[in-house]
């Protein structure tokens, strides 16, 4: 693990069938790198929620994960409606998800709080009608 590893994935909006694929693949890589299982669990929860957010709300997005010996930094950059009020979006129980998405058991307003609880650093930048960029960092050692 002397050099940084970079992994890239693409997400299409509304593609619920493939939601979680990036999380699953990054999980495998972290296991191969012998990262502490508890840390892997935190990363997986945060990344899955972020992935589902792109699928549920955006038109498309890209994920890039950079892994070093110290930490993993995951960036999700989407083209979509953006978030009008980020503080509101961080509130447990607040959601703008569609009825269809809610029927599937998503959109309970727990995604962003789940992310925040499981990462060491979280930065969300959003522009309405343009898109949202989420950067999260978790320490690995």
């Amino acid at each position: 693990m002397s050099n940084a590893i970079t992994l890239n994935y693409h997400i299409e909006g509304s593609d619920f069938i493939n939601a979680g694929n990036a999380s699953s693949q990054i999980k495998k890589v972290l296991q191969q790198l012998n990262v502490d299982p508890k840390t892997i669990k935190r990363i997986v929860v945060a990344l899955y929620e972020a992935e589902v957010n792109v699928v549920a709300h955006a038109y498309k997005g890209d994920i890039s994960a950079e892994i070093t010996t110290e930490d993993i930094t995951i960036t999700l950059d989407d083209e979509g409606p953006g978030i009008v009020d980020i503080d509101m979006a961080m509130t447990e129980g607040y959601s703008t998800a569609s009825p269809k998405v809610r029927e599937m058991g998503f959109g309970a307003g727990m995604g962003l709080p789940n992310i925040k609880r499981n990462v060491d650093e979280l930065n969300i930048q959003s522009e309405v009608k343009v898109g949202t960029k989420v950067v999260m960092k978790v320490k690995l050692s």
Partner: peptide, 8 residues
Amino acid sequence: DLLSDVMG
């Protein structure tokens, strides 16, 4: 039945 609840 809430997926984020199970995830979290």
